[in-house]
Design a protein around this nucleic acid. Structure first.
Lengths: 119, 119
DNA sequence: CGGGATCCACAGTGATACTG
DNA sequence: CAGTATCACTGTGGATCCCG
């Protein structure tokens, strides 16, 4: 059961938006809440908040609050969170290859099938 | 949006039991349906079937059916599926470190908090 | 600006019983 | 032995409105 702690890592990455959030934070270093919203327009505030809170709980991102009006909150990746990046990158690369693999299997005829897996 | 194909890989790994199934198949090479059930006693037949079907669909595992009475079906990892292992292993290692990280943060005092994350 | 609160839809998971 | 079928539950994700 706990022979495989891959789930532990998986749990942290799971969540429709977490990889993307991490990706953007990784690119920009630090982003405000509104900045993340702009970077990921489809996400709702609720989800963004929720996912950030989870990441914060797991000590992957840091939340810096500036007590002022209007409020300002900045998110950044913790040093610890950095250690996740190699994994994300590997998954990204693998995902890329997987898309190619699918094209090879089903040919270019059925782009829908491929597109389904890109989503 | 498709800058981050980590989701593609994530999609394939997601599913409460997939990493564990892959882990056991990786260990044993080939396993029968009942063998997997024995290896993962908590899983229901329904879930095992469902997850195996998904993995099969993604070309990660191979399903070999022996037409006979009683039925016999063997599951094994495809060559392509092997390419996933480095990622799983990385996640496993990271998960292990994460558990240690939590202990460091919260100390041994609150084992519940740790246990929550092991689940 | 950066949320919180509430309500809702649906996919994933699970227990149980049945089948070729 | 290796599944299918059915039903129930639960958490995630989403829309909308409200707040300091």
């Amino acid at each position: 059961m706990d022979e495989c702690k891959a789930n532990t890592a998986l749990d942290i990455l799971i969540g429709k938006w977490k990889p993307i959030i991490l990706y953007h934070l990784g690119q920009s270093g630090t982003l405000r809440f509104s900045g993340l919203q702009r970077a990921i327009p489809e996400i709702t505030k609720k989800m963004l908040t929720a996912q950030l809170r989870e990441l914060e709980y797991h000590d992957i991102v840091h939340r810096e609050i500036y007590m002022q009006i209007p409020p300002k909150v900045e998110y950044s990746i913790t040093e610890y969170g950095q250690t996740l990046f190699p994994i994300i990158e590997m998954m990204h690369n693998w995902g890329q290859k997987h898309v190619d693999h699918l094209e090879e299997k089903y040919g270019d005829g059925s782009e829908e099938a491929v597109r389904e897996n890109i989503n």
